[in-house]
């Protein structure tokens, strides 16, 4: 046995049954190890219960024009503002060239419900909650929201106008179930 084994290695270049066995065993070994590594990593991703909590319904009937509320969706704040006519006008009048992340106000609202602005209340810079929803909070230079963490200013359409944030405040997927109820998610 031992002589035939060593001679098989000396036959340089020629493929032997033993080489095949090495590769097959090594390959299956790597596959098995790999299939065990994936569960060790994937368990850190959101669990089923976290994924299941993915939508909420919000009643809008108590919100007056000019008021905002804070809803909670997937553990995150959602800003809902019932905008005044001036705020809507201001948002629609901005030329796209002035915007860092160009988007029209129409793209950020539902047709027929332009009054309502629904956004994830998380600064697109590093995730703080901007001020401007509660009465008396700093609304920044553009009358929308202001993030105190590193100074990002958002306009009345939630678009980034000044500061380090790269993108507009995110619009979550939502739908009007009737005129005064929305489902987020």
């Amino acid at each position: 046995m031992s002589t035939s084994e060593s001679s098989s290695e000396d036959h340089g270049g020629e493929v032997k049954r033993r080489d095949f066995l090495y590769i097959a065993a090594g390959g299956f070994g790597a596959l098995t190890a790999g299939s065990m590594v994936w569960p060790l990593i994937d368990n850190l991703n959101p669990a089923a219960n976290v994924l299941a909590l993915a939508s909420v319904e919000v009643d809008l009937s108590k919100i007056e024009v000019g008021q905002s509320i804070l809803a909670k969706w997937r553990g995150k704040p959602v800003f809902i503002r019932r905008r005044t006519a001036e705020e809507i006008e201001q948002a629609q009048a901005v030329p796209l060239d002035d915007l860092k992340d160009p988007q029209t106000d129409e793209e950020r609202t539902e047709e027929g419900h332009e009054e309502w602005l629904v956004m994830v209340g998380i600064c697109t810079h590093l995730g703080c909650v901007p001020q401007g929803t509660k009465v008396g909070e700093n609304r920044g230079d553009y009358g929308g929201w202001f993030c105190p963490c590193h100074g990002s200013h958002y306009d009345t359409s939630g678009r980034i106008r000044k500061g380090p944030a790269p993108r507009n405040l995110e619009i979550p997927a939502y739908a009007f179930l009737d005129d005064t109820t929305i489902r987020i998610g």
Binding site: N45, P46, V50, K76, G127
Partner: peptide, 24 residues
């Protein structure tokens, strides 16, 4: 959130780090 700066997979990395959609 620093990791969200990574192009393309940034948000997936952050969700992975959190194990959810926010720090929880």
């Amino acid at each position: 959130n620093l990791f969200s700066a990574v192009p393309l997979v940034g948000d997936a990395i952050v969700t992975f780090l959190w194990g959810g959609f926010s720090v929880d």
